[in-house]
Amino acid sequence: MNALAQAGYTTSTGEATQFWVLAVFAVAGALGTVLMRKSVHSALCLAGTMVILAVFYLANGAYFLGVVQIVVYTGAVMMLFLFVLMLVGISAADSLKETIKGQRVLAVLCGIGFGVLLMAGIGNASLSTFDGLEDANSGGNVHGLAALIFRDYVFAFELTGALLITAAVAGMVLTHREKTERTPTQRERAAQRVREGVQVPPLPAPGVYARHNAVDIPGLLPDGTPAELTVNRTLRDRGQIRDVSARALADLAAIEQRTADYQGKALEPDTPADDDGDGAVSTNAGTAGTGTAGEGEGQ
């Protein structure tokens, strides 16, 4: 930090080292924000980048801003993001698969063009010297800022106050949902279920009898295929179904094989139930793995 005290053409070696090391992480965090499939990971990457930026603020003599960056951004804003992520949940929107034709190509082209041009502009600006903030920060960074905010920028400051109030009210107005109708009773819900006739009895419970009782394991239908209906919808939407039917079927097949070997009989080539079960299981396992089937329903 003492490098800041020097006016001139270069910063201290320490700052340079810090920059080069942290800049790599900052870029990595930014890329992570863009490229991570799950929003939570994106949020965490962004938080990391923001912390690194806070360090850079400090290195640039903006002590107050550096602290505010951590407190407000990394603390409050990112928390808000995570809250909303929790509210909204996970969905097909998280997929990185592009749906608009040519969008990604255009985005990359524009990005490259934008970055190159911006950097060319900066490089072209002949910024070889800099003044440093020694004089400005001589009375303390916070004091200097306060003097400016409450004197030169006081009007803008007042305006931001009004803006924040407005934003707070807007946040409440937008998210507030007035309850205009009575919550249906259990009896009414049952009656409606019968009327609709889609799923009259209660949903079946998850888990496989005597083997697994975790909520993310679907129950099996008589033919051995997993019944997704048994799993909680949120898990279904997230594609977090752990399918164990394949293993059960494999075990069954092995037992039958062994029995056949023991009895000296050739196993009948195809038992229809067995074959169907295999196919269905593999399909379902595949979909569960990529999560697309679940996401499709989630939409």
């Binding site: 870029v27 924000t33 863009v34 929003s39 929107a93 990604r104 524009c110 990005g111 970055g115």
Partner: peptide
């Protein structure tokens, strides 16, 4: 960083991201 952010805005579909 700005460029990466801008590209992210156009590439990502999740409104939160």
């Amino acid at each position: 960083l700005f460029t990466i952010g801008a590209a992210g805005v156009v590439i990502r579909r999740n409104a939160i991201v």
